[in-house]
Design a protein around this nucleic acid. Structure first.
Length: 114
RNA sequence: UGAUUGGAUUGGGCAGUCGCUGGUGCUUAGCACGAGAGGAAAGUCCGAGCCCCACAGAGCAGGAUGACGGCUAACGGCCGCCGAGGGUGACCUUAGGGAAAGUGCAACAGAGAUAUACCGCCUACGGGUAAGGGUGGAAAGGCGAGGUAAGAGCUCACCAGCACGGUGGAGACAUCGUGGCUAUGUAAACCCCAUCUGGAGCAACACCGACUUGCAUAGGCUUGCUCGGCCGCUUUAAAGCAGAAGGGUGGCUUGAACCGUAUAGCAAUGUACGGUCUAGAUAGAUGAUUGCCUUAAAAGACAGAACUCGGCUUACAGAUCCUAUCACGCU
RNA sequence: GGAGAAGUACCCAAGAGGCCGAAGGGGCUCCCCUGCUAAGGGAGUAGGUGCAGUAAUGUACGCGGGUGUUCAAAUCACCUCUUCUCCG
């Protein structure tokens, strides 16, 4: 199983915010867009609004744990897409299994997985 | 039993499964082993290591500290002690040198604010006088007696302050005696004295590969000024030097380290011996989930290392331990 | 990670030890202008909170918060909170 590539350039995030399609939930916001590389790339952000460093780190870890579960089950379907997950204030109070459910709903809305 | 005082500790534990970061070993890109946030990692307020500025030089300016003795690599920190202030007390607070070196400021009120005569008192009508009045944070040491025209340290006793001497102490200082006779406050106003201080910070700095621009009797050497010193001011068409944007590697974790015992010291702390290796990421690693224990409640405080140490300051749910004091009750 | 700057009425702000609830402007209220409104012109009050008072007014606290220096602090010193800027 290969890992997903991490997005870390600010221009990558801006491209998805402008041109990607978005799906929202009180616990998570998802941006996604097709890429030409044929691989899966992800980025996770947590803004200062969420809280201090501990609260931001916890939010990111829970989103990452949820994505790992999703990626293990649907690796072939996710190839060829870029994802940006934006944490919200409520993210850190949820369990990663709850975030996983939200993430699957968003992917179904986008017709990436069945 | 109640109310306090000063200090110390802890900041859930164990196991299974799926994952993350770097280390070691084997072999080959997977497996095995063991490791993986804090008491404040925070604020960046001080001090240092390390590092660059040629050497890190001199003077002025600027900045910091401020009783005394010690500790420390150093400090604006810590310990002890003295003075002052607060508390019934355990104990707490304290930027705590100098105002007779000089300058400034002291609104309003008040007659007058560092020198004065408004009312009053006395008078020989020139003046004298700070006792009484009122104002103010402060009015010429305080209070009593003598004294005087009326008054005044003018004289005396006591108290406070200053100088000198004796005694005790390592010293700040305490205490006793003698002397003359008075000096408003402010230095977290300028200033004076003593001590310390060059600047910049790991986004420092060094190296590697690729990109492109510039090159003069220039410039540069990182606080303000002055002096001194140093590098360089080339060469002839691609070396050398400099600059801009981005990438990689090092710096990067063994250190004034931690733990235990003994010992010197009231203590801070030092010394000796033995043992241990204890995060090094780079969009940034500790999460998810299940069970058991603990608990009133399966966890719920403040909070995430970013070169590293020593302090200070600030935030902090709950729990535990020690020390001393006061009040009440019993013996 | 490191280096700096600023917080004053509802908003923008001046003040840099005493005359300071604190200049000035916007805003607010009233009037003129207009068929009505905006713009423009003129005039004016209070400026926050608590307490006392029918009210006028008085008084205490108040310049992000706290502690100190001083007779006296928006102003000086220290600690702290918030916001903003610069360094790749």
């Amino acid at each position: 199983m290969s890992q997903a590539v991490v997005l870390n350039q600010n221009t990558d995030f801006k491209r998805l915010y402008k041109k990607g399609s978005s799906y929202t939930n009180p616990a998570l916001v998802t941006y996604l867009k097709k890429n030409n590389a044929g691989i899966c790339r992800i980025g996770i952000t947590s803004s200062k609004k969420i809280g201090n460093a501990v609260e931001r780190n916890t939010s990111r870890r829970k989103v990452r744990a949820a994505f790992q579960e999703v990626y293990r089950d649907h690796e072939e379907e996710l190839k060829g897409y870029d994802f940006v997950f934006v944490c919200r204030v409520r993210t850190r109070f949820k369990k990663s299994t709850d975030i996983e459910k939200v993430m699957l709903e968003h992917l179904k809305e986008a017709n990436i997985i069945a």
